[in-house]
Every structure is written in structure tokens, then in C-alpha cells.
Amino acid sequence: MTRVVLATRNTGKIVELRRILAEARVPVDLVGLEEFPHIGEVAETGLTFAENSLLKAHAVAAASGLPAVADDSGLCVDALNGMPGIFSARWSGSHGDDKANLDLLLAQVGDVPDGRRQAHFACTAALALPSGEEHVVEGFVHGVLIREPLGSNGFGYDPIFVPDGETRTTAEMSAEEKDAISHRGKAFRALALIMGRVLA
């Protein structure tokens, strides 16, 4: 069975991709970076989701000698010309401060009328092989931003994002409901098809 490294130490992402690969019947042994303590964090210096996911995937494939998968994702707000985008996790200045990021974003779109609060979550996932071969896929979920956070199941901007066709925020959905429509779920499912072909 081919060993594949997911370029993250986030156990939630590893569990999610394992589940998607199992559903797609892709027989790989997926492990995270916790198996490779010598591999440090890869700086996300790209200007697009695709550049960042490829940077991470190639760096981990080179360091591990194994096929590697990486993703980059964020929230793109129409009224902010697509921002925060690749800066979503550090929009307020410090990386991963979900509450500060969300509060700043709400303040920035405070004057935007309800009919113009469209946004989408985007995810780019990449597979890089030690040979240098690469594959990139994208996933999106479109929706609108509400004015007050609702729900506690999600993270990041989930409490203020209502997907098209829904009345609930993604933070009010179960993990399974969110997986079914999420940008990351769509990108990982598309990548699973490629992995089944390339790694068979």
C-alpha cells in the first residue's frame, strides 16, 4: 500500500482525508507530519491558494521521499475584492486567532448592505510526487455573510457564513453536513480520484 503524507499536523484534516479516500476506495496509507518530526513548517509565501498548496506538497515530498498532499484555503469576500483570501488565517495580524479575524472582518463589512454580502470559501489541494510530478484541484462553496456569529460546530469564519440554499451557518451544521458541501471536501474528493489513478 502506497504511503502518502498529508502536509499538516492537524488531526482533523487527516481524519477527513482518510474518510474521503476510503469512500473513494483509494488504498493508500495516509499519515500526517507528526510521523516526520524532522520536517519543519513550510512558509506559505505564495500569492495564491494553488502556489501555497504546491509549495507545501513539493517541500514535504522532497523531505519525506513520499507522495505528499497539501491544501490551502480561505474566505473570499466580494465586497473586499476577494480578501481575506490567502490571508484568512492571519487577517487580524496573528495566525489562527479566529475570534479576532472574525471580528475584524465583520467590522470591515459592517456598512455593506444585506444584498451585497456575497462570499465564498475556496480550497486548493495539491498532490506532489518525489519525481516532481504535480496535480492541483479546487473546491468552492458560495454563500453570504450574516451580521452576528451563529453556531459553535465550525471554526474560523464558519459562524458568519451561510451557504447558498441554506438557512444555517456552516457552524450550525453537523460535521457530516458540512463535509458534504465544503470547499475542502470538494477539493479532497477531486484529488482522491486523481490519487486513485496516479498512485495505483
Score class of each variant (00 low, 15 high):
Ile146Leu: 06
Ala126Gly: 15
Glu148Thr: 15
Val109Phe: 01
Ala187His: 07
Leu127Val: 13
Ala128Gly: 15
Asp111Glu: 15
Thr124Ser: 13
Thr170Arg: 00
Ser152Met: 05
Gly154Tyr: 03
Glu148Ala: 08
Gly132Pro: 12
Gly151Trp: 01
Glu133Ser: 12
Gly185Asn: 09
Asp111Ala: 14
Arg117Tyr: 07
Thr167Leu: 09
Ala175Glu: 15
Phe140Asn: 09
Thr124Glu: 10
Phe161Val: 11
Gly110Trp: 03
Arg168Glu: 04
Ser182Leu: 12
Phe140Val: 14
His142Trp: 10
Phe188Lys: 06
Thr169Asp: 04
Val109Gln: 08
Gly132Thr: 15
Leu104Glu: 10
Val144Ala: 13
Ala175Ile: 15
Arg117Lys: 12
Ala187Asp: 14
Gly110Asn: 08
Leu145Lys: 00
Ser152Thr: 15
Ser174Glu: 07
Val136Tyr: 04
Glu172Asn: 04
Ile181His: 03
Arg116Phe: 11
Phe121Lys: 02
Leu127Ala: 12
Val162Ile: 15
Ser152Ile: 08
Thr167Asn: 07
Ser174Asp: 14
Ser182Pro: 06
Arg147Gly: 14
Gly110Thr: 02
Val162Arg: 01
Ala187Phe: 03
Gly151Glu: 02
Glu134Phe: 09
Tyr157Cys: 05
His135Ser: 13
Ala119His: 01
Gly143Ile: 02
Gly154Met: 11
Leu106Ala: 09
Leu104Ile: 09
Val136Asp: 06
Asp158Phe: 00
His183Gln: 13
Ala126Lys: 00
Pro163Ile: 01
Asp103Leu: 08
Glu177Phe: 02
Glu166Thr: 04
Leu106Ile: 05
Leu106Gln: 10
Thr169Lys: 02
Asn153Tyr: 00
Gly165Pro: 01
Pro149Asp: 12
Leu105His: 01
Asp164Val: 05
Leu104Trp: 03
Gly115Thr: 14
Val137Gly: 04
Phe121Asn: 00
Leu129Trp: 08
Pro159Gln: 01
Ala180Lys: 00
Glu134Ser: 15
Arg184Phe: 14
Val141Cys: 05
Gly143Tyr: 02
His142Lys: 09
